[in-house]
Computed example of a mutant assay.
Amino acid sequence: MTSVAEPDYWSLLGLPPDSDAKQLKRAFRREARRWHPDLNGNDPVAEERFKLVNEAYAVLSDPRRRQAWETGAVPGGASDDPFASGFPDFEDYLDVVLGRASTSVEPEPVATPRPEGAPSARTEPPVTSPPSPPPVRASEDLESLVELTPEQALYGTTVELTLDGGMVVELDTPPLAGDGWRLRLEGVAAGGCDHFLQLRVVTPEGLRIDGLRVHYRLELFPPDAALGCAVDVPTLDGPVTLQVPPGSSSGRLLRLRDRGLEMDDRRGDQLVEIVIVIPADLGDAERALYRRLQELALEADGL
């Protein structure tokens, strides 16, 4: 079976398609902060994802472009790369995109009347108290890893945890939980600290569960990503053949419709994230080809 992949802007922002403008803006701010290159050490994967987040918000926040994307009339992305000359500072970027105005008001000096002929009073700088030191904690928060099956994450389950000192705690995990969720047990650790449970919901095939959605990282060699390819990917219902479009970069999300978990009358999708990998043991012929590609790229840039 062959599935046709397509970009999914809603899933890229972690939103359902019926989200309103306020939810869209909040999700965009969260994902932009998460993937901004300044906050990720100029990670090329983060740069590519940041561009996709920007593209998703630009399309979904514009009713005309959003309608065109949803109907498939025209491509949703912008034709020009707005970050070709670099990435702006994160806060400045949000000010421009979200239309926030940054203003500051300087306090005006208040003149105090004085009797005629009296000497002028000296103006002393205000005295500010040093910031209070952070509170001292008796011990650090603790964290345990709890592995769940997709079914347990979907419907919720009871987890039994034995703490230091022999205390046994039972906790009901919420339904529609996902891999990486952290649940807090407040004040149960030594010194009144919290104990966190980090949920791990990953199948042996590498499928990560998040509510009804399923996530999968698809590693590709550069030629396959550049030219496109057909590759088998695992799903909860067995492997399917996915057509990867040419020119796919790391961080690109492809959607397999209705390949996620099902609850009541709802069924999620599976999101496939492209990850480009370079073989560690390149041969002489392969190195020569990469060197030639590098030369061609420099020639195209006029260097």
Rank of each mutant, 00 (worst) to 15 (best):
R291F: 11
V231T: 08
P234Y: 00
A230P: 00
D258V: 05
H215Q: 12
A121W: 04
V240K: 05
W35I: 08
S61D: 08
E55I: 02
R208P: 05
G178S: 01
A189R: 05
D179E: 05
V45W: 06
E140S: 13
G247C: 03
E70K: 15
L256Y: 04
T123Q: 12
S61T: 07
E286N: 09
F28H: 01
S79Y: 04
L293F: 03
T103S: 10
A190K: 10
Y155F: 13
R252C: 06
K51Y: 14
A288G: 14
S61H: 04
L52F: 11
A280T: 14
L227Y: 13
V136M: 11
D224Q: 14
G14N: 06
T158P: 01
E106W: 12
I274A: 09
E91A: 11
P234V: 02
L199Y: 07
P126W: 04
P222G: 05
G180T: 10
P234I: 02
P82Y: 06
T123H: 03
F90W: 14
P109A: 11
E286C: 11
L298N: 12
L24C: 06
T157V: 07
S248K: 04
A111V: 13
P119G: 07
T162E: 15
A5K: 06
E151F: 13
V53H: 00
L148Y: 00
S104P: 00
A121S: 12
E219N: 09
G268M: 08
R182F: 09
L199W: 11
S129A: 14
Y93A: 03
E143L: 13
Y290L: 13
D269S: 04
L271F: 13
E151A: 15
V233Y: 01
L98D: 00
D265E: 15
T241N: 03
Q198L: 06
Q198M: 12
W10H: 14
Q152A: 08
P88R: 05
S250W: 06
G251T: 02
A27I: 14
A177I: 02
P175N: 06
L220D: 10
A118D: 05
P7Y: 01
A84I: 08
A153R: 07
E219V: 09
S79Q: 10
P119M: 06
K25D: 15
P109L: 04
E170P: 00
S11G: 15
G77I: 08
E205Q: 12
L254G: 12
R114V: 15
Y93H: 14
D92R: 10
A300K: 03
L271P: 01
L212D: 04
R26Y: 10
L303M: 05
L145I: 12
E286T: 12
E70H: 15
G14H: 02
E273W: 07
P150E: 08
A285W: 09
L207Q: 02
M263D: 04
F196D: 04
R114M: 12
E151M: 11
S120W: 03
V96T: 07
G187V: 01
P246S: 08
P135Q: 06
A101Q: 12
A58V: 03
Y93N: 06
R137E: 10
R114G: 01
V53I: 08
V110C: 01
G283R: 05
W35E: 11
G247D: 02
A138Y: 08
R200C: 06
A68V: 07
F90A: 13
N40K: 09
V96P: 00
A230D: 13
E106L: 15
F83P: 09
T203E: 03
